[in-house]
Amino acid sequence: MAQTSFIETGQGRRLAYHRSEGQGPWLVFLGGLKSDMQGTKALFLEDWARRAGRAFLRFDYSGHGESSGSFGEGAIGDWAEDTREIVTALTDGAILPIGSSMGGWQALLLARAMPERIAGVVTIAAAPDFTEDGYWANFSAEQKAQLESVGQVELPSDYMEPYVISKRMIEDGRRQLVLRGPLELPFPVRFLQGTADTAVSTATALRLLDHAEGPDLHLRLVKDADHRFSDERCLSLITGAIEEVLAATG
């Protein structure tokens, strides 16, 4: 496997990445909360892109994987900064973000920040606004009081150690919301969502589809697929969605 490279951002964060040249638009994989660029989907898509001769970038947000920083000190806006900086520094021309879970939110933030660079978007179990609609909305009065007094709460995870959710993450998340105002996506978009996903509901996927505006938006619900969306069938659906977007861009 190729050696990890690093880039220093304008905010002083050291981000780890793997980058392979090829035909554009650049495929940029955006991972989920507490995930890293060594996950099944990221590695599979890198290999697929290399075999197809496609330009590909995967990286770790600050506080994730091999990048600098502590997860507990990070927030949605920090990771959006990381995404914009690394995309600007390491890619040129059109980009096609492929966002998984929290990375789906990041893909939408990227599309809002630099729409002129976006050829299309693919999301997998996208989780826009989850700090507000998933965490804050479901916190008990005790958890909200703890967040205020201690500055953080711990939430169990089905996939790893508990998430430490800080007061800063909740407050910063409110500045990054995409489902409260216009969400213009004037390019091909494919949303993928498993019906057996216990982390992101089909209702969230339908809300996103209903809220977003664009000429070519499609949601594919996959029966019995879970949040990982990483078995052979699901990986094939991801590459199929990418190919659809690429074909639509000409």
Rank of each mutant, 00 (worst) to 15 (best):
T4A: 11
Q11L: 01
R14Q: 15
L15D: 06
L15I: 08
A16Y: 09
H18T: 12
R19E: 11
S20E: 14
E21A: 15
G24D: 05
G24Y: 04
L27E: 05
V28A: 01
F29C: 05
F29M: 09
G31R: 01
G32Y: 02
L33M: 10
L33T: 13
G39S: 13
T40I: 15
A42Y: 01
A42G: 07
F44A: 03
G53S: 05
F59C: 07
D60R: 06
G63I: 04
H64K: 12
S68L: 07
G69P: 09
G69N: 03
S70F: 11
A75W: 07
D78Y: 06
R84M: 14
E85M: 00
I86Y: 11
T88M: 08
I95T: 08
G99W: 03
M102C: 02
M102Y: 01
G104C: 07
W105P: 01
Q106K: 11
L108G: 09
L109H: 11
L110I: 08
A111H: 10
A111G: 14
R112M: 08
I118P: 13
A119W: 12
A119F: 14
G120Y: 13
A125D: 14
A125L: 03
A126C: 10
A126T: 04
G134Y: 15
W136H: 13
N138V: 01
F139L: 15
A141G: 04
A141M: 09
Q143G: 10
K144H: 05
A145Y: 01
Q146F: 05
V150H: 03
V150P: 00
G151S: 00
P156H: 06
D158K: 13
E161P: 07
Y163A: 00
Y163C: 04
I165Q: 02
S166M: 00
S166A: 07
K167D: 12
I170P: 07
D172S: 06
Q176S: 07
Q176A: 06
L177M: 13
R180A: 11
G181H: 14
F187D: 01
V189S: 00
V189P: 02
Q193I: 03
G194K: 14
D197R: 15
D197L: 09
A199P: 06
A203E: 15
A205L: 06
L208Q: 08
E213G: 03
E213H: 10
L219Y: 04
R220M: 15
H227Q: 00
R228Q: 14
S230N: 14
C234I: 01
C234P: 00
L235G: 08
S236N: 04
G240I: 00
E243S: 13
V245R: 03
L246D: 08
T249N: 08
G250D: 11
